[in-house]
Write a protein that binds this DNA or RNA. Structure first.
Lengths: 215, 215, 215, 215
DNA sequence: GATGAATGAGGGTTCATTCAT
DNA sequence: GATGAATGAACCCTCATTCAT
């Protein structure tokens, strides 16, 4: 019994250290960038010894891999769940946008790292995780495709392209926040969720604009 | 006369080597990524001696800076020109989208490098060039803002956010091509130009979808 | 207890490696010169891995800085101590000369490095350590100044200049040994100590020479 | 005739450029140090093209070699001439000290370069020119030796050591000026010439000091 | 588990020197 | 003579990773 508890204790402690390192890595990667930081910076930030990082992770890359996958899989889970529900497509897309914006609001460093170091890194991490990344795009594309089949979305717009445009719009808002080009008050986050969906689904054009255009 | 020709010859030759290096760098950066390639890879690809890279550029960074600025400034020029013309806002945005897609079609490696290594690189090149990058966002934001003032675009959507969403949608299409997630035949490029504008301006929603939603 | 011993062991071992590198650096700097040697030469001479040099020292410069300061500070200590004692000025100067000659005799490489690479290097290390170097000159100048005030030394000779002449005379003897222009048997070292003081204090001139001159 | 004049003209012009480069090198070596400056720095300072330095000199080293030898040979000439004259030894030594101090006063940069980069550089230029350098020491040693044979100088002090002490005292005064540790007004230079000879020949000790010492 | 000393390959940059014009 | 583009060897330093304790 007591030995069992000690074991649990130890395991828990170990898990804690691992988490400590991951959280420290997020801050360091966000602050300095993956390439510009050293493994020792992570250890220092975590307040652990140099070599301990290698006790829990096989390499510096694996730390980032872990961070990315942890978060991306949660997002995939959310998307899959949304996908399975009976819900207007617009609400589905808003759920996804909300999740991503909430993720940024909750842990901007982590989302910064994912967006800056992974999803665009075509020659390194982006390439490694392309299948995982793609899954999100495909799921969103599937939702749009369904909406098109139901006549709710225009069919002239290729669903895969539309999915990319939608996702790209969201990521660019995050990029705007990361570069401090866009305001990031609580209200801004809230409106951003609606805004991106309204833009992509309803369009920027007003009724008047549309009439003007169509003459 | 002859000395004049020699001068021209010389100058031209020198400029050629510089261009040779820049073009080689595009290919190498695109193939391996900025961090993963060595300066010697660029020199080898250009077929020049190692040190010559440093004769024309102060550092490896400066090579990428040069590539980015060359292209981005051409784009800024285009945007400014479009901005100055009398033209429906939708046409303006399509001109921009067209320019970017054409740029990719014409030199995918260069656009890959810019998108992968610069515009998202918040801790390195993106940060260095943030003012230049921002100028594009601001110009687009200005166009949208004007359209809102004219009642052609919905006013509830913050113009700065809308501009980011629009630009992000385009970049993500390029990202899709870069990762080979989207088809990139001549027809695809052509339709992409229209598609991204139609999505952002007109919205994905069909008339039927809109009625369904508004009940 | 045992952990304490391990700590000591570890610390000692670490200190040993550092010392190993410093001692190797002395030999390498003396043999090849600071500029002509590579950091790998030091590592090889010490029998340690290349990177270990950078584990203990921030740069190649810092290795030389350390060597210089270690020795120069011992000398300053000696000079300060001598300065504080009640002792004829001639004995004080001889103590200093003795210390320097002994230093050379004990570790000619180290003194060679200091004299060749530091005390004259007006654009590099000499400039870096000028304040520390000057302290020695000033202390000697102070001794001479006191002797002048006491009437024991001629007052027409500026004490600062005299101190420089005295120190320069000694360093030049070392330079003579370094270049193998002067004999360096045990007897030579011993006589050199006396000789330099006798020259600077008593003068080269014999009683007869003086009478001849003054007529 | 005219071709001859043109030849002369050309030769003269060439010699001028060579001199231009040498003079520029003195300034650059003095300012930055031999190792820290680049050949292009010399060319820039001289206002000539990069490659021209290599038209007149086989290497960067040869530039310094030339500067050193030019000056040192003039000094050797002076010492030899003084050596050949009938003159009290003290006057001979003062002539040498005067020449060196005058050299510094006239062109401090050149003397700085010689003292900092050559006469102590046991592993590079000092070693290359050791025979030439030594000649000066030997000539001075010879003078002292003669004076000892004539009974004018004490015989207990080895002439070679005494010569080194004398020369070292002078060089150290220059070092003091170079490091700006000693005042260098016109009066200071003048007094320095006398001072160094008085110190080495007459000694620092006053008559009172001597009596005190000898009891 | 935890520590941090030890390793050594790798790469950016410098710069003396060459050479075509 | 004069120019400066071109060459490429050399070297300092970084830092991911290993390993003995």
């Amino acid at each position: 019994m007591s030995s069992g508890r000690v074991e649990t204790q130890r395991t828990k402690s170990a898990a804690d250290k691992r988490r400590l390192i991951l959280d420290a890595a997020v801050r360091v990667f966000a602050r300095q960038g993956f390439h510009a930081c050293r493994v020792s910076d992570i250890a220092d930030e975590a307040g652990v010894a140099y070599g301990l990082v290698y006790h829990y992770f096989a390499s510096k890359d694996e730390v980032l891999d872990t961070l990315f996958l942890e978060r991306w899989n949660v997002m995939l889970e959310l998307i899959r769940q949304v996908d399975g529900e009976q819900m207007p497509v617009r609400d589905k897309l808003e759920a996804i946008a909300s999740f991503i914006v909430d993720s940024y609001q909750h842990d901007p460093d982590l989302m910064k790292v994912i967006i800056v170091e992974v999803t665009r890194a075509a020659n390194s991490f982006g390439n490694t995780h392309i299948a995982t990344i793609r899954e999100a795009y495909d799921l969103i594309g599937g939702m749009i495709s369904e909406a098109q089949a139901a006549g709710l979305f225009k069919s002239e717009i290729d669903a895969r392209f539309a999915a990319m445009a939608f996702y790209g719009a969201i990521e660019q808002l995050l990029t705007g926040w990361i570069f401090e080009l866009l305001p990031q008050g609580p209200e801004d986050f809230k409106r951003a969720k609606w805004l991106v969906v309204e833009t992509v689904c309803g369009g920027l054009e007003s009724r008047a604009g549309e009439q003007e255009r169509l003459g």
